[in-house]
Design a protein around this nucleic acid. Structure first.
Lengths: 254, 254
DNA sequence: GGAACCTTAACGCAGCGTCAGCGTAT
DNA sequence: AATACGCTGACGCTGCGTTAAGGTTC
């Protein structure tokens, strides 16, 4: 039961923080050591360790030290503080995602068009503008669909986006090949392409018919898209046509 | 062609930054106004605006001002700088995800066990410990599977995790109901449950057989899991048994 | 008494926000 | 001559890292 006491160095090591941090917490009154030695040395106990662990965790969650102090003084305020924190963290993450996405898309776009790296910065600027100016897409969705799209956006990550972008590019390439071979839209190979198409669409709509309707309206109105969007998202009309015929052939069979 | 000149305030508004920021950039030598008026006023031109836009974009991508200075001085260094930045942003995002996930899971866990909020902090600590001490799961996977699991982790978000957690909880509840009704594992309703089970598993494995094998090994060894993991992930043996029988019944039919 | 620890004080960092005190343009 | 801007310091904030100059412990 001899309550072991630690001096800063040892204590810091145990908790995985630096001595300087402990000094800092002490001065802020966030973690005052149990007592001092005659010479003025800080002496910590296991109870201090428990408190420090809480501090470390709350720091991991991104709470500022002041907030941590408040929370530890009044534990009842923790749930509310965390709710706010979840929102803050979510916002930060969305910003990060936007940045990551902008870089990735700009690079992809340059490669796809065979442009040199020297235009990279310009391309990124365009990317970011398009991200912030996507208001025009909203006009095609019903209020209900808008809400659903927002919901689905939350499940969305740069990595996922990268996968999907690639999948579309591959699919388009394959369809183009089928076009060159004069493939019959009703043939099994074309039907397989149509199935891939449907699946990718479903990845976006989540199978929701409201969203699907919005998408249909949007695609039907391509000539009214902003120029930059048209340049980026527009799909070769022949490809579109081929897929449409494949869809019809599939529907006719069923 | 009269090159319009702007004074700080107007210029700042045009670019969506503060006057103070412009002063700051000026002193850093990051953006020096084209010239000064006789009275010493900063006078900016449209060329300055173009440069400022680049600065703003690079800041959006999270580059420190020093780095921005370097990149603008030597545009060729941009691609390399961005590659590094993508890694940095990715790391930051993973940390955010961990924090968000820890909070969400801790709250979910408390609700599920009907425990009070007062243990929230303790629960979060446990969550984080489990996140960092997931080394034990690695022993069940082949090297190949380990790599694949790491790959799939990148596609993983707190929101997705929340969805999946809920889906499992719902499914388990439904299976439990089927158990109470003494449902036949071969009956269509039980088969539907088995299908949902398979689908959720596939969400984790991504359909990869290597990962699936690792998972199987892991589940077969439940008695050797660390205590906290067992408490959190263990599934009612009766539920497991029911699903297994449903799988067998399905396989027998096919 | 020397090595290994401890103390406080103070500056540094990034990216500005925010006065303060004083000119300038109209 | 009042009002609206502009200028240059200079300190503040966050969470410590990093010396520096000097005491304590064994």
């Amino acid at each position: 039961m001899a309550d072991t006491v630690y001096r800063v160095h040892e204590f810091a090591e145990r908790a995985g923080v630096t001595v300087r941090a402990l000094h800092h917490y002490d001065r802020l009154g966030l973690l005052t050591p149990a007592r001092r030695s005659e010479g003025g040395y800080r002496l910590y106990t296991d109870r201090d360790l428990a408190r420090l662990e809480q501090i470390v965790v709350l720091k991991f969650l991104g709470l500022p030290l002041k907030e941590i102090g408040r929370v530890l003084r009044d534990q009842a305020s923790l749930p509310e503080a965390l709710r706010t924190q979840v929102r803050v963290l979510g916002d930060r993450r969305r910003q990060l995602d936007q940045a990551i996405f902008a870089i990735a898309e700009a690079e992809r776009s340059l490669r796809a068009n065979g442009e040199p790296d020297s235009t990279l910065l310009r391309q990124i600027i365009k990317e970011i503008e398009m991200q912030t100016n996507n208001e025009w897409t909203r006009q095609y969705y019903s209020d209900e669909a808008k809400a659903k799209v927002e919901e689905r956006k939350k499940l969305w990550t740069p990595e996922l986006q990268a996968e999907v972008s690639k999948a579309w590019a591959d699919l388009c390439a394959d369809v183009e090949a089928a076009l060159k071979d004069d493939e019959d839209p009703a043939a099994p190979r074309a039907q397989a392409l149509a199935a891939r198409w449907r699946k990718l669409l479903e990845g976006f709509t989540g199978g929701d018919p409201e969203i699907q309707r919005g998408l249909n309206r949007m695609w039907a109105d391509q000539q009214n898209w902003p120029a930059d969007a048209r340049q980026k998202y527009a799909i070769n009309p022949e490809i579109q046509d081929f897929i449409m015929r494949a869809f019809q052939a599939g529907a006719a069979k069923a």
